[in-house]
């Protein structure tokens, strides 16, 4: 019996080893361990084994059964592993990925505008807007622009037949915002389109994009303007960017400044590049707003504020080294692709 068990074990292991798939392995299991299998048949002979040998034969029988069971299990595992490996056979991971719909891109102007907006929002500015078809009052009069100022000329400004005009700057949103304000402080930024009657060429567009900012309260000073705009431009151009303020003139701010940042163009020395205009809101603007509102919320004796404006197209050109502003309106996909995230 013992020798029978030994040969049975040998046969079973050989059969397991020969099995090529799970079905063949199952046949092996049935043949040896099934109800009518050889091991089962032998174990039924246990009752005829003399008592003094029972212990030995019983142990042997158990050993044979365990060995076969384990063999089948590990073979099963090996077969599955081989199958799994086969499933990824021949895959070349170095091939390009499937493009599905491909990636688009936001327009570089949108990206710049968003960068500016995110930065200024962190400083507590909220967004504001106003119409692009404006009245002369909102675009010029209320902004302290003399009645015969050259900017009002039909040569420089687009007009509608009814006397309204296409706003020449987003500064008109300052007036719109102050007219509608219920209380102070006002702390807004207004990105938007503006129009000037310029022939389109490499550096000019007749429709361009600006970002206006306005902070009005009772204790706003030039120091607030300086700190805020320095922080803003360092966020945009890098923490070590040099920023300078040059005195300038705008009808609606006093004092007024132009802002330059020192930037390096590739292969050239760093130079000052004009980037924005700013200043303290002229009291005449507050007076005009009060007249329009019919109250004295913006008391020119006590209210102060700063305003700034910058050209987003120009900012995009500087940041991305774009040489011709017309790229920004032509929307050639080979251009747009370069700004994919």
């Amino acid at each position: 019996m013992l020798s029978q068990l030994d040969s049975l074990k040998t046969d079973a292991l050989a059969a397991i080893s020969a099995a090529q798939d799970e079905a063949a392995l199952e046949t092996v299991r049935v043949n040896f361990l099934g109800k009518k299998g050889s091991v089962t048949a032998l174990s039924q002979g246990m009752k005829d084994v003399p008592v003094d040998q029972k212990k030995e034969v019983g142990a042997k029988l158990n050993d044979v059964r365990t060995t076969i069971t384990d063999g089948i299990e590990s073979k099963k595992f090996a077969l599955q592993a081989a199958l799994d490996a086969k499933a990824v056979e021949g895959i070349d991971i170095t091939l390009p990925g499937r493009p599905s719909t491909g990636n688009g891109a936001m327009h570089p102007l949108t990206q710049i505008r968003d960068l500016a907006i995110r930065t200024l929002r962190r400083l507590g500015f909220i967004l504001a807007e106003g119409p692009e078809i404006e009245t002369e009052f909102h675009c010029f009069d209320a902004l302290n622009t003399p009645a015969d100022h050259p900017a009002r000329n039909e040569k420089d400004t687009f007009y509608l037949p009814d006397g309204r005009l296409l706003r020449t700057h987003t500064s008109s949103v300052q007036i719109r915002t102050m007219e509608a304000a219920k209380s102070l402080p006002i702390r807004i930024i207004a990105p938007g389109a503006a129009y000037r009657r310029d022939e389109i060429d490499a550096t000019h567009l007749s429709v361009f994009n600006q970002l206006e900012g306005l902070y009005v309260s009772n204790d706003v000073s030039l120091a607030d303007l300086k700190g805020t705009l320095e922080a803003f431009f360092r966020e945009i151009f890098g923490p070590n960017t040099a920023v300078r303020f040059r005195p300038h003139f705008f009808p609606f701010t006093e004092p007024s400044f132009e802002i330059d940042v020192k930037l390096e163009a590739t292969g050239k020395d760093a130079r000052w590049i004009e980037i924005a205009g700013c200043g303290m809101v002229d009291p005449a603007v507050f007076t005009a707003v009060n007249q329009s509102r019919g109250d004295n919320l913006f008391d020119p004796e006590t209210t102060t504020g700063f305003a700034f404006g910058l050209g987003l197209d120009r900012l995009a050109m500087i940041l991305h080294s774009i040489t011709d502003i017309r790229h920004l309106i032509e929307n050639d996909v080979r251009f747009l692709q370069q700004f994919a995230a």
Binding site: I126, L127, A128, E129, I186, S217, A223, G227, E230
Partner: peptide, 22 residues
Amino acid sequence: LDRVPSKMTAVAVPSDATDRAY
């Protein structure tokens, strides 16, 4: 402006419809 200190005031202003639209 070199003589003027740089001051930074962040003021909390409630957002409005324009912000949500953006």
